[in-house]
Computed example of a mutant assay.
Amino acid sequence: MTDSISSVLSQIRAYQSQLGQASRAGDVARSDTVQGLAGMREAGLGGTVSGPSFSDTLRNALDGVSQAQAKSGALQAAFERGEPGADLARVMVASQQASVAFRATVEVRNRLVQAYQDVMNMPL
């Protein structure tokens, strides 16, 4: 169970670093793994942080999972047709990447639902 949690966390960190690299300006560098922590620190200093919102981050992560699944499906179809560039190893690696990405997405969704239920069950 601990291995699955650490793999989910590493997948989330990988998505976040990809998003950080894509949205980062040439002269802005972030050293924090979690960009929200930097935002909280800078907000305390009176500054504003312009970074991707939670919904943008979630949407980009879901798009990445969708692209991984589409790539896996395309490689499987190419392998079934017997195309020379689609060997079994590439098909299996793409399939496993899509599977891990999907499982990570489901785990994040489960955690968000649990957090929502915890907040809704808090006494006033």
Rank of each mutant, 00 (worst) to 15 (best):
L75S: 05
S31A: 08
A38Y: 00
K71T: 12
E80M: 10
T48D: 13
N121R: 14
R41Y: 02
S95L: 04
G44T: 03
G47C: 06
T2A: 14
Y15D: 15
S72D: 12
P52G: 03
Q76N: 11
R13H: 05
D27L: 10
L45Q: 14
R90P: 00
G26P: 04
G82R: 07
R59A: 13
A29N: 10
G73I: 03
R41K: 13
L112K: 08
Q114G: 01
I5V: 12
R24I: 00
Q16R: 08
A70V: 06
S53N: 08
L75Y: 13
V100T: 12
N121F: 09
D3N: 08
V119F: 14
M92Q: 15
R103M: 10
S53D: 14
S17I: 07
A14Y: 08
V34W: 08
T48R: 13
T33P: 03
D87L: 05
Q67F: 04
A98R: 02
R103H: 07
Q96H: 07
A25G: 09
N110L: 13
S50Y: 05
L45V: 01
D63Q: 12
Q97D: 15
A86S: 14
G51F: 02
R30E: 12
V119H: 13
V108P: 01
V100R: 08
V65Y: 01
E83M: 13
F54C: 04
L62H: 06
Q117W: 07
V65R: 03
A104P: 00
S99L: 12
T33K: 05
V49C: 05
V119T: 11
E80I: 02
T2F: 04
L62V: 00
R103W: 04
V113R: 10
R90V: 07
S95M: 02
Q69D: 13
L75F: 08
A29G: 00
V119S: 11
Q11F: 05
P52K: 09
V49Y: 09
D63P: 00
E80Q: 15
A43V: 04
N60I: 04
E107F: 06
R24E: 13
V119Q: 15
Y15H: 09
P52C: 03
N110W: 01
M40R: 07
N121I: 03
M1D: 10
S53Y: 01
V28D: 12
A14V: 00
A61C: 08
A25C: 05
Q96G: 01
S7M: 11
A77Q: 15
G64A: 15
G47L: 13
Q117H: 09
A115T: 08
G44F: 06
Q96I: 07
L62M: 12
D63L: 11
R59L: 09
V28A: 07
P123G: 11
V108H: 06
A78V: 01
M1S: 12
L124T: 08
D32V: 00
L124V: 11
S10F: 02
S99K: 10
Y15E: 15
G39W: 01
A86C: 07
M120L: 14
L112M: 15
V8P: 00
A43T: 12
L88T: 01
P52V: 03
Q117E: 15
I5F: 09
G47T: 07
A38E: 14
D32Y: 09
V49M: 12
Q117D: 15
R24N: 11
D87Q: 10
D56Q: 15
D3R: 09
R41H: 04
